[in-house]
Nucleic acid binder design. Structure first.
Lengths: 110, 110
DNA sequence: CGTATTGCTACGATAAATGTAGCAATGGAG
DNA sequence: CTCCATTGCTACATTTATCGTAGCAATACG
């Protein structure tokens, strides 16, 4: 495996600004969703797939690898993907999004 | 062209949960970046392109349309794209990401 | 008129995601 | 041990998204 984005390869990091790297990493399909679905409890790869609207295992596996290399997600001993402490922090950052989304909908359908 | 989305077509909204729709919308290439680059002041389409690392105008235009239909971005009278009040709210939601990214980097390169 | 912006589009080439199928490894139940 | 279900993960052909380059019509200034 060893794809390695860790030491300076995440797209967008050319700018040197870590936000860009993060924004780029999160701006890929299913990245945000995966973090979101893992917010409460760990899930097996298959349960995660189900939670993610039956997304293709190819992409899911790719994102999972990237997120693991980024240090946000980890694969537990007995199987199952879960958030690392760092990943949990990141997820907290996104929590206000939930409330925002509710307000957003009401304005859209208004 | 009249793409889509405006009145209930954002991918991911099939679940009925607005977070999913939002997560999906933001989980497309350059979406987060565009919001980020507009955080301070409006930019012309070309300035935005420059800010976004010379991204292809095709995608940029597509994202811009989607973000406009979502009500986050608007095209000013005298030209130039800017955030709507709603878009500014959303951007505020992402601000903690900046600080997080800094911490993230220090842990990655540790 | 020429020139230089603006927002935006066409289109072939390339990269990414989808959908379906299946692998090797692990852990019971009989 | 065999059978079966589950785990994480991969192959591969098809479809979709994005890239990169070029260029359009509209507007403004001299």
């Amino acid at each position: 495996m060893a794809k390695q984005a860790a030491s300076g390869g995440v797209r967008g990091s050319r700018t040197g600004r870590p936000v860009m790297a993060l924004l780029d990493l999160l701006g890929r399909r299913w990245s945000l969703r995966i973090l979101w679905e893992l917010r409460d409890a760990p899930l097996t790869s298959r349960a995660l797939r189900t939670a993610c609207d039956e997304a293709s295992p190819t992409v899911l596996q790719a994102r999972l690898t990237e997120l693991r290399e980024a240090g946000f997600v980890e694969l537990g001993d007995g199987g199952g993907y879960g958030l690392t402490p760092l990943g949990r922090e990141l997820c907290e950052t996104f929590m206000p999004l939930h409330r925002f989304a509710e307000r957003w909908r009401s304005k859209r359908s208004a």
